[in-house]
């Protein structure tokens, strides 16, 4: 589901306990088993690193950890484009909320900040292109 102002939200249930899911989403060695082809970061608040998807695209997506609240909340920001240094204003915020359920663990994942980060830039690029086209047409 995407809410009205452009945040992504997902809820997933796991049969495993919170601690196990926590390790799978915070330990770089485990993350690369399911998330991408490579994942490197310094595990502390403010710690920086990157994600990589070798098969899907070349390049590294810079990321930075914002909050670690073991074992219920983990938040990091990452860049929408590969191979550029981390810049908060061009990043989106990914938040992982874990809670205990009768069956195991509920994960609520949100990604937000698209409007701040990408849309503005996209819009500007769009206008540059359109104005260039207009110029070419008029000339």
């Amino acid at each position: 589901m995407i809410d009205k102002l452009g945040n992504i939200e997902r809820k997933v249930n796991f049969r495993q306990p919170v601690e196990k899911v926590w390790r799978a989403i915070t330990d770089a060695a485990q993350i690369k088993q399911w998330f991408g082809s490579d994942c490197v970061f310094e595990f502390c608040e403010g710690g920086e690193g990157y994600f990589e998807w070798e098969e899907e695209c070349e390049g590294k997506f810079a990321m930075k950890i914002e909050t670690i609240n073991e074992p219920h909340y983990f938040a990091w920001r990452w860049m929408l484009k590969e191979d550029i240094p981390f810049d908060k204003t061009q990043s989106t915020l990914v938040e992982w909320h874990l809670s205990k359920t009768d069956e195991g663990t509920l994960l609520r994942l949100t990604e937000s900040g698209f409007v701040d980060a990408k849309h503005v830039e996209m819009n500007i690029q769009g206008w540059d292109q359109e104005l260039a086209d207009l110029q070419a047409f008029v000339n």
Partner: peptide
């Protein structure tokens, strides 16, 4: 948004 579906499915399978 759809990319997350694949990733979370992969997390489930991994676990």
């Amino acid at each position: 948004s759809e990319r997350w579906d694949k990733r979370l499915e992969a997390l489930q399978t991994y676990l």
